[in-house]
């Protein structure tokens, strides 16, 4: 019951999804769309579970007066405030995403600057990592260095000012060798995902039950 039923559910769900792909007629025609709707609904409940887990972990830290409890308090307050303004926006405007909704205030002046600055911060760390990693030790490392420099120079006005070679070479690198390797990796990853999916459907891979 504890292992057989989940294995059966996984197999049947995946099986019907595959059947609906190859047999786009009734009774299987609408099955894929229906299962994806169900998936979205169940994922919503999973999200609630995840947020609950986050809430409990930080609440525990506050109650037990552990180090970082004030930061945990800030996290819980920001979480509760965001949820509250979302509900208020829904009740007052019919949608939390209405431009007048307080939820959009949190999004515009909280999430956007925090997210953009976090990613902007990475520019410094990527640059410092490149200083350590980009050393022309051998041929392939030199290729990495040269292609990165050409792409960086080719995408800014100063590169074109130095030489018209940089924008043209940048475009060629992105369109041909970069695309070729990316495509090769994507095809390999997709084939790997197919084989892993088969292992899951056939019950060989069961780690999700642990």
């Amino acid at each position: 019951m504890k292992r057989t039923v989940p294995l059966l559910i996984t197999f049947l769900t995946g099986f019907f999804l595959i059947v609906s792909f190859f047999v786009p007629h009734e009774p299987f025609g609408q099955l894929e769309q229906r299962l994806l709707v169900w998936f979205a609904i169940v994922s919503g409940f999973a999200m609630l579970l995840g947020v609950d887990s986050l809430f409990r972990a930080h609440l525990k830290r506050i109650i037990r007066a552990r180090e970082g409890r004030w930061h945990s308090l800030a996290l819980l307050l920001s979480l509760v405030v965001t949820l509250a303004v979302g509900i208020i926006g829904f009740a007052k405007f019919g949608s939390p995403f209405h431009m007048q909704s307080p939820f959009m205030f949190v999004y515009t002046y909280g999430i956007i600057p925090l997210q953009a600055t976090m990613f902007a911060l990475l520019a410094f760390y990527i640059a410092s990592a490149s200083y350590r990693a980009f050393r022309a030790r051998n041929t392939v490392a030199t290729l990495l260095l040269v292609s990165a420099v050409i792409v960086m120079l080719g995408r800014v006005p100063i590169g074109a000012a130095i030489s018209q070679f940089f924008p043209v070479a940048q475009e060629w690198i992105m369109d041909v060798p970069q695309l070729a390797a990316k495509r090769g990796i994507q095809i390999g990853a997709a084939l790997g995902a197919v084989s892993m999916s088969l292992r899951i459907l056939l019950g060989i891979e069961r780690s999700y039950l642990s």
Binding site: F11, L12, I18, F39, I200
Partner: peptide, 15 residues
């Protein structure tokens, strides 16, 4: 059970 359902969807779409 619901986890198995979501894994099944993921595996089906994975193929």
């Amino acid at each position: 059970w619901p986890i198995a359902f979501t894994v099944g969807i993921g595996a089906g779409l994975g193929i």
